[in-house]
């Protein structure tokens, strides 16, 4: 009887194979818009120790009472497979789609960015906002509120640029995503 070598603590509780890299993945979950459905999804992630990097939810079909939840998470391929199956197990879930590996999709996020300042800084903020195709949706003599959409990375870059120019406050929607091409999910 051979004894397996035991160089590091490993067991049933260390399921993540260290060789597998974590992958950032976007799931779209179509659910019945009923009371508590978001709590079920969020509780699943919290209870099983999965990450949530971003989560958005809104009703997408009023007649059919269905909502669409977009969740950005990360995990090894095995963990991602579990996340998907665990989501599918929830009774009010219609469909789960992986918009990273299975059906490559496009992602967008919207941010509202408040910047306060006067003089040169104010002019520079407005000039940069133009480069990012941000829109001014509120203004006073000493402030702007910009609306900017794009990938999460683009929003990060814009917000970073605003910091020295009087950034006051940021509000972001989180990621929404949809698959490319003609087909529905």
């Amino acid at each position: 009887m051979s004894t397996p070598k035991r160089d590091e603590p490993k067991s049933a509780y260390f399921l993540v194979d260290q060789k597998d890299r974590e992958i950032r993945t976007t799931f779209c979950v179509l659910v019945d818009n009923e009371a508590g459905v978001l709590a079920r999804v969020v509780g699943l992630f919290a209870g099983r120790g999965y990450n949530i990097e971003s989560l958005t939810v809104a009703e997408v079909d009023h007649l059919d009472r269905t909502s669409r939840i977009t969740i950005v998470t990360s995990g090894t391929p095995a963990v991602l497979e579990q996340i998907r199956h665990q989501l599918e197990r929830l009774v009010p879930v219609h469909k789960v789609f992986d918009l990273t590996a299975e059906h490559p999709g496009i992602e967008r996020e919207l941010a509202l960015v408040k910047v306060a300042g006067t003089g040169e800084k104010r002019v520079e903020a407005l000039r940069l906002s133009d480069a990012f195709r941000a829109r001014v949706i509120d203004t006073t003599h000493s402030s702007f509120v910009f609306e900017v959409t794009g990938s999460a990375g683009k929003l990060d870059a814009f917000i970073d640029l605003m910091k020295p120019l009087g950034l006051v406050e940021v509000s972001r929607t989180g990621v929404v995503a949809i698959s490319r091409g003609a087909e529905a999910m």
């Binding site: 049933a12 399921l15 095995a78 497979e81 579990q82 199956h85 599918e88 197990r89």
Partner: peptide, 9 residues
């Protein structure tokens, strides 16, 4: 019968 049981551990 539960797809999440397969490949879980």
């Amino acid at each position: 019968i539960d797809p999440s049981s397969i490949n879980k551990t």
